[in-house]
């Protein structure tokens, strides 16, 4: 592989894995398996999937009880209804938080995550620390995210080990009656849809 093959590599020192990825990318292009354009399209596709998709779903479910029922009964159809492409997900389950029950999602075996509606997982979601402590000490993890729950609340930790992808539907914050869906969506953070915290109580500054 020469250095003269039409695209730039980072100039700084690369990690072992980064070097390996660039080497594989160059070989795949050199052998005609994929093209530069394929890679660019894929990057754009990945970047277009963000937690804003999940936030739109949750905000709509908050204001529209019929949509909420459809979202819970058939999440993929609900996504399609508002123009979110969730076809890449095999099966998709909505976990509804209530004053009595909080859900939290982890994949202890790897980093399974509902990417079409939440985008790429945050680094902490993939860390060994989160993957271990979310199951062994979920209340401790929630506390670090600022959520302190009384004992009578039931915490349900979902270990997403197989074909199902989970999204938590956080509770609608008090005092948001009459808000627009767009404003409500701003309260629905990525972390609230993983379930480590509640939705924001007020609009971020």
């Amino acid at each position: 592989m020469s250095d003269d093959h039409g695209h730039d590599h980072p100039k700084h020192e690369l990690s072992y894995y980064a070097k390996r990825i660039y080497a594989m990318r160059d070989l795949l292009i050199e052998k005609g398996v994929i093209s530069e354009k394929d890679i660019q399209c894929q990057i754009e596709y990945q970047e277009a999937r963000t937690p804003a998709n999940g936030a739109r779903l949750v905000a709509k479910a908050w204001v529209d009880p019929a949509f909420k029922a459809r979202f819970i009964a058939d999440p993929k159809a609900a996504c399609q209804e508002i123009g979110i492409d969730a076809t890449a997900i095999n099966e998709f389950v909505v976990l509804e938080n209530t004053p009595q029950v909080r859900h939290m999602v982890v994949c202890t075996l790897c980093s399974c995550y509902p990417r079409p509606i939440l985008g790429r997982p945050p680094d902490w979601y993939k860390s060994f620390n989160y993957r271990q402590r979310s199951v062994s000490d979920p209340r401790g993890v929630m506390r670090e995210f600022g959520l302190e729950l009384p004992d009578e609340v039931e915490v349900r930790v979902h270990d997403s080990t197989a074909d199902i992808r989970y999204i938590v539907m956080p509770m609608r914050p008090a005092g948001t009656e009459g808000w627009s869906e767009d404003d409500l969506a701003k309260l629905v953070t990525r972390d609230s849809m993983i379930g480590v915290m509640d939705a924001l109580p007020s609009l971020p500054e």
Binding site: V135, S136, D137, P138, R139, L149, D151, E152, V153, E154, V155, R156, V157, H158, D159, S160, T161, A162, D163, I164
Partner: peptide, 17 residues
Amino acid sequence: VFGTGQGPKDKVLVDIY
């Protein structure tokens, strides 16, 4: 699964074949 330390109603739910 883990002994004590969490809330009395807390549960771990795992997808298993």
